[in-house]
Design a protein around this nucleic acid. Structure first.
Lengths: 192, 192
DNA sequence: ACATCAATGTGTACACTGTCCACACACCGT
DNA sequence: ACGGTGTGTGGACAGTGTACACATTGATGT
């Protein structure tokens, strides 16, 4: 059994430690302020150690964003109830995730991670989280798959935009009472 | 009259040159890749010259984003026609602006500019561009101002989210034919 | 049990960044 | 003519991402 108290040369599971450390740092620092070296320091390891697990800083950020998408999918998939209500609750859960993890969400979607298409796992996790929305929309609207896919994009746009505006404080000028509740966002697919 | 050919010690209007240079660089580089020094180089000036006009790199970026909001307001305000149609065209113009200037748009809304609230002119320009949306929504829905403001937030969310997803390529997996046209986004305020 | 090796971590180094400081130049009103 | 104030330069510093050479380790085959 590995000892924890004495400093060992090998870390054990540095990869996971780095991702978790970056997630912790994202609770307070913005992704732009997050340096690879600070993540390494937090893990108690030299500045170059991360390069044994990630080919670049972007690759680390991609892994972090991937974890973010997994968590997002978990949160949204947890919405229950009859299809229509479930969809509304899913939207609310989505917005809640974004506003509770603003910097992580910004990393997942923002321009910080410019070449995200290169990271296969990230793409897969993103697609999976979108699939949750598509499925819920399809169940709520009861139309053909093609139409459901288009409606899902609309719903996703509304929820994503609302979340982004809320995160960046662009909704801050309105008193909270006058903000439309996130549940209303699904009205975008209401018209038949 | 100032000569242009010989290199002068004083630039003439460096502030404007820096903002325009940064806008040009944003056509090819992402905001995260844009360095203050490269902007200075493009203007043919020493690395520190910008500090006579902007107190920090963020201040320069804020000025660039401000110009972006002014252009966005111009583009959206140019939408004409009967209120309902005008709103739809405004949404389309908004999305077009975002997709044609993806990196500028990302700077305006993304997490790159973390403390945007500190830059007064930027806030004003952002509010002005939002006011265009509110006014158009109010004209199209014909309800009380409070309701119109809420609806404007919904519409803005939808359009903003759609633009963001399009910019970041998250809509790329769908064939373009199956994408909902941006005009449909205003359906979010369709239900009465 | 032991040598060996690939995996994993360290140290040094480099170019580049944002920003601070002291200095240089050039246009302005007096 | 001149001095001062706004504007640009040069050098410096800490911090960054990353490349390269080296060190340490745990697992593996004999």
């Amino acid at each position: 059994m590995p000892r924890r108290s004495t400093k060992r040369y090998h870390h054990g599971d540095l990869r996971k430690a780095l991702v978790e450390g970056a997630l912790r740092l994202l609770e307070t620092r913005s992704p732009a302020e997050l340096s690879l070296r600070s993540v390494a320091r937090l893990a108690g390891v030299s500045p170059n150690a991360p390069y044994r697990h990630f080919e670049s800083k972007d690759a680390l950020l991609a892994a972090v964003a991937e974890e973010g998408f997994r968590r997002l999918a978990t949160v949204t998939a947890a919405a229950k109830g009859p299809p229509r209500k479930r969809l509304a609750q899913m939207g609310a859960a989505y917005v809640r995730f974004a506003t509770e993890n603003p910097r992580l969400y910004g990393l997942m979607f923002g321009p910080v991670l410019s070449g995200w298409e290169r990271y296969e796992g990230l793409v897969a996790a993103g697609d999976a989280s979108f699939a949750v929305v598509v499925e819920a929309v399809a169940a709520a609207t009861n139309t053909d798959p093609k139409r459901a896919s288009r409606d899902a994009i609309l719903a996703w746009s509304a929820v994503h935009g609302y979340a982004m505006l809320a995160i960046d404080g662009h909704l801050g000028s309105c008193p909270a009472k006058e903000l439309p509740p996130p549940e209303e966002l699904v009205r975008i697919i209401d018209t038949r």
